[in-house]
């Protein structure tokens, strides 16, 4: 009983409960048919949200106004970079992944420079840089639908006992990110900056270095995500990352991370990602139209945040 109570006190548990309810609703509708397959598919798709969600989480935790809107363009460019470098050859997979990572990190570092050197608010800075990245992507990857190397495409689709290997990797990665957040100097610093940037500086935290690392990290995760998406969907495209603009923010918030900064939650991102993906799956199995699907998604986001309540006033 006590164990249940402590479990319920965790903010992330709700997103998992939500995911469970949605899944149960979906399989009730299908009469149990495809229950396992639904989970496998959901795990595969949720991983991509988790990867960018964690990057976005660190950025948002830096405090009010911090957000990375360049992720979609970043993902698009990285997917093109990875596919071009790999060039369909199995031997180039590692190089391609590194290139995608580097492309993402470059975007992240550029974001930080705009914010720091030119003192542009993060929302606008990442937005403007995403315009530029998008153009680079269009010019760089135009018309080329390069297929991923077969080994890479297969890798992204491997399943072990019905669990996609990417999902296993995603869980391990989330675990590491949780450790970094709570038990490493980096994570502590991010949390401190998010609560009060000035107090953090006065407590000896190298604020600007941490912000640089965070934006670069978010960019790097976007880059990796781009490469993996291209493998999973068998090819790069300019709009491959589009849905991650809103969903990366949504999973962070639904997962229990505070938009006001200073409070983050890694497990919740997994829960929220599964919840969102399963929600879409459920609505698809119900056969509702795209409009109803969007409508319900929106209402649920508003409902969740209203129920979860706001933070105490930021003075």
């Amino acid at each position: 009983m006590n164990a249940i109570r402590t479990l319920l006190a965790r903010p992330w548990i709700w997103s998992f409960i939500g995911a469970l309810i949605v899944w149960l609703a979906a399989i009730t509708f299908t009469g149990g048919y495809g229950a396992g397959g639904m989970i496998t598919a959901a795990l595969s798709l949720a991983v991509f949200m988790v990867i960018v969600g964690i990057g976005q989480m660190f950025v948002i935790t830096l405090g009010p106004g911090n957000v990375d809107l360049s992720l979609p363009a970043n993902i698009g460019l990285a997917s093109a970079v990875a596919m071009k470098v790999m060039d369909g050859s199995n031997s180039m997979i590692a190089v391609g992944l590194i290139a995608a990572l580097a492309s993402g990190m470059a975007v992240g570092a550029a974001n930080y420079l705009l914010i720091r050197v030119l003192r542009i608010p993060p929302i606008i800075a990442t937005l403007s840089s995403s315009f530029i990245v998008l153009s680079i992507d269009i010019a760089y990857g135009r018309g080329l639908q390069i297929k991923p190397p077969p080994a890479f495409a297969d890798f992204t689709n491997i399943q072990i006992l019905g669990i996609p290997i990417l999902a296993i990797g995603g869980v391990i990665f989330a675990f590491l990110a949780g450790i970094a957040l709570q038990r490493m100097i980096y994570g502590r610093s991010v949390l401190a900056i998010g609560q009060n940037m000035r107090a953090a500086w006065l407590a000896g935290i190298p604020v600007e270095r941490i912000r640089f690392l965070t934006y670069t990290l978010s960019g790097a995760l976007g880059g990796i995500n781009g490469a993996l998406l291209a493998g999973y969907f068998r090819g790069a495209s300019v709009d491959i990352g589009n849905e991650y603009l809103l969903s990366s923010i949504a999973v962070v918030v639904i997962g229990g991370t505070s938009v006001a900064g200073g409070k983050a939650n890694v497990p919740g991102i997994w829960g929220a990602s599964l919840f969102l993906v399963l929600l879409l799956t459920m609505l698809n199995t119900f056969g509702v139209s795209a409009g109803v699907r969007l409508l319900l998604t929106g209402l649920i986001i508003v409902g969740v945040i209203t129920a979860a309540g706001g933070q105490p006033a930021q003075r």
Binding site: L246, V259, S289, A290, V292, L296, G298, I305, P312
Partner: peptide
């Protein structure tokens, strides 16, 4: 409710778009 407007309006953006598509 002292909610972050970014998130509430993010949710509403889905709602408006859903309604628009329905219409």
């Amino acid at each position: 409710r002292n909610l972050p407007s970014i998130v509430v309006t993010l949710g509403m953006s889905f709602v408006w778009q859903g309604l628009a598509i329905l219409m």
